[in-house]
Write a protein that binds this DNA or RNA. Structure first.
Lengths: 160, 160
DNA sequence: TAATACTTGACTAAATTACTAGGTTATGCG
DNA sequence: CGCATAACCTAGTAATTTAGTCAAGTATTA
C-alpha cells in the first residue's frame, strides 16, 4: 500500500464522480475543471480505474464516466490500489529467502502492518466520504451564517 | 502522511533497534547487516530520526543508537513522519483558497482522511510490533517443528 | 593517541510523479 | 452523412523522490 498524491488525486476524482454522476455520466473535462486536475492526467488515472472495474465509461457526446459499482461498495483502498500499480516487490518476492538463509521476520511484519492499513482503508467507502462531505458542507454553511472569519475551523465527525 | 519503502526501512530499522538495544547501544553497521539495508542510507534515516528525538546516539567505541523513548511510547506514525519530511504542501497551503475562489471541500476531506490514517498508525507502537513479532516467531517455531514445507503460512493475530 | 563509530554533505542513478502533446476510436445529433 | 464530442491510447518530459555511494569530518573511549 503506497500512499501519495497520486492516490489522493484518484480518491478526489472518484469522490467528485460519486457526487456528480447522479443524473448521467460525468465528463473528465468537468472533473478536471472542478477539481483542478490536469485532464490528461485524469485520463491516465481513469484508464486504470476502468481496468479495475471501479468506473464505467460511456463514449461519444453526452458520454463520460459512471461509478462501476454503487458508492457504498467502492472502498478507498481499492481506488488507491488501482492507481498505484501495487508494486509490492519486497526484496524476497514472498519466498521468504530474503535474509541470510533465515526467513526475514521484518518482511512478514511489514506485510502485516500493510494489511492492517489496507483493511482500514478498505472499511471506508466512497459513500462514507460523500456522507461526511455533506455533513461538513452543512456545518460550514451554518458556520458562515453566524460569523465571517476566514479561519480553518475543523468541524469534522471524527469517526468514519 | 506518505507511505513508501522509505518508511518501511525506518520502521524495520527501529524495530531491529527496539529488539537489539536491550543491553547497550546497537551499531548501525549491525542493523545494516541484520536487515540488509545500506549503511549510508541508514545513516541518513537515523539522522532524521535523531533530530525528531526518536533515537539517541552514543558516540565512540561501544557506541551506537538507543531508542529515544521506551518502545511503547514510539508510534509507527512518528517513525514514518520523521523520515518522510512531511511534505503535506497541498495545493492551497491550508489557506483554503485553492479552488476558484471557494474553499476546496476535497482538500478538507483528504486532510481528514489523512488524519484518520495518522491516528491509526499513531495507535500502533514499536512495543506492539515487537510483541507481535515474538508471537509470530513462536508460532513459526511450532509450525516448523510439526512440518517442513517451505510454504508461506500466514499465522498472524489480526488485531494489533 | 589510535581506533571506533557517529556526523555531515555532496553527489548520483533509477524510479516515480505529474503533466503535455497528439493522435485514434466510438457515438449521438442535426 | 458528417461533424462535434467524448473517451481512449501512446510517447515523451521535467521535476521530484528514492535509494544509495563516496569522502571527508568529529566525538569518544580504551
Amino acid at each position: 500500500m503506497r500512499l501519495t498524491t497520486r492516490g489522493r488525486y484518484a480518491v478526489t476524482a472518484m469522490l467528485d464522480l460519486a457526487v456528480n454522476s447522479a443524473n448521467g455520466p460525468a465528463r473528465l473535462a468537468a472533473i478536471s475543471e472542478r477539481q483542478d486536475i490536469s485532464l490528461s492526467y485524469l485520463e491516465q488515472l481513469f484508464g486504470q480505474l476502468r481496468r479495475q472495474g471501479l468506473v464505467r465509461s460511456q463514449r461519444g457526446p453526452g458520454g463520460g464516466y459512471l461509478l462501476g459499482r454503487e458508492a457504498a461498495a467502492i472502498s478507498i483502498a481499492e481506488v488507491i490500489a488501482a492507481v498505484n500499480e501495487d508494486t509490492d516487490a519486497t526484496r524476497c518476492g514472498g519466498a521468504g529467502d530474503c535474509h541470510h538463509g533465515g526467513t526475514c521476520i521484518t518482511h512478514h511484519l511489514w506485510m502485516d502492518l500493510s494489511d492492517q492499513i489496507r483493511s482500514f482503508l478498505g472499511d471506508i467507502s466512497l459513500a462514507n466520504l460523500v456522507e461526511r462531505q455533506e455533513v461538513q458542507a452543512i456545518a460550514r454553511q451554518q458556520l458562515t451564517a453566524s460569523q465571517s472569519s476566514g479561519d480553518e475551523n475543523r468541524i469534522v465527525a471524527s469517526n468514519v
